[in-house]
């Protein structure tokens, strides 16, 4: 039974992930006063890449890189419960907690970074360096907010945190939410902090050496990761969800905000984004933390 539920969670994540990805391309297109591609365009792209005649590989570690990334994404998904009270659709979250999820979020990209490294493309190495140096600046405000929430709800278990929120943490502690939101934009790879895979500056960064089915796998795992992160943010800050509809609604609202914020801003250079992240969101989060723990 649990296997069926896990499979269902995976399909939902895959489908909704690509749906959101298509919506993202359409909404940004509408921002740029043009008709975006059909809704399932990203899905078509990934399937087309799966159907390529052949794809270049550089040794077994290169081959395993995207696979580790994909398995990291799926594992993270399974450790995040979809709903607040009920135990169904909670995947394996009863066996893990928030720390496990926070580190799983980073396990995938690190595995992929190994593949990029063996690929030997200097642009790949440059992309990974930017990604990692941006990573720790992103994590700081997010960790402060998450720690505040964990100490507030007295447990590190995600479903418990979601259940504990009588009023949404986003409303109860707005400063924490804003701090976490800044780094969430970076985690979703949205504009002010997405210098990692910039197609022109860094020859599309880590993905520069991936062709054919590797690229397809990267696209599908990014869809799953997006959905997993959205659900996580909903559980942590927006008071979790009872049913599917509420889950989709909340995730879409969050996603909408993140894309629109992203499509309005140009790209920061890596030192700029680190400098910004270590200054503004961190101070907001620290103030939020102090206020939260004082009361």
């Amino acid at each position: 039974m649990i296997l069926l539920e896990l499979l269902l969670m995976l399909l939902v994540a895959y489908g909704v992930g690509f749906l959101y990805y298509g919506l993202y391309r359409n909404i940004t297109a509408r921002f740029q006063r043009r008709f975006g591609p059909p809704l399932w365009q990203s899905f078509f792209d990934s399937i087309k890449f799966f159907l390529k005649e052949e794809s270049t590989s550089h040794g077994w570690m290169f081959y395993l890189g995207p696979i580790i990334m994909m398995s990291g994404a799926i594992t993270t998904l399974f450790f995040i419960p979809f709903f607040k009270e009920t135990t169904n659709f909670s995947g394996l979250s009863s066996y893990g907690n928030l720390f496990v999820v926070l580190y799983l979020l980073v396990l995938g990209p690190l595995g992929n970074a190994l593949g990029v490294g063996t690929g030997g493309n200097p642009f790949g190495a440059m992309g990974v360096t930017r990604g990692l140096s941006r990573l720790f600046a992103l994590e700081l405000p997010f960790y402060i907010a998450v720690i505040a929430i964990m100490s507030l709800s007295g447990s590190a278990d995600i479903s418990e945190i979601a259940a504990h929120q009588s009023t949404m943490y986003a409303l109860a502690y707005p400063l924490l939410f804003i701090g976490a939101l800044f780094s969430f934009i970076g985690m979703m790879g949205q504009s002010p902090f997405d210098v990692v895979g910039a197609p022109v500056e860094v020859y599309s960064g880590p993905a520069s050496e991936f062709s054919g089915k590797f690229l397809a796998l990267l696209m599908s795992q990014s869809a799953i990761y997006t959905f997993a992160k959205l659900v996580l943010m909903v559980n942590l800050f927006l008071g979790g969800a009872q049913g599917f509809l509420e889950l989709l609604l909340k995730t879409f609202v969050l996603f909408l905000f993140v894309i629109s914020f992203g499509s309005l801003y140009g790209r920061f250079k890596t030192p700029q984004s680190i400098d910004f992240l270590l200054k503004v969101p961190t101070t907001i989060a620290v103030i939020g933390l102090i206020l939260a723990t004082w009361s």
Partner: peptide, 22 residues
């Protein structure tokens, strides 16, 4: 994931040497 990945239509061809990069 490995099983799925191996069974896709597109076959991975080994690059000739370390200079064969984009």
């Amino acid at each position: 994931v490995v099983i799925f990945f191996v069974s896709t239509r597109s076959k991975a061809k080994e690059a000739k040497n370390r200079f064969d990069i984009a």
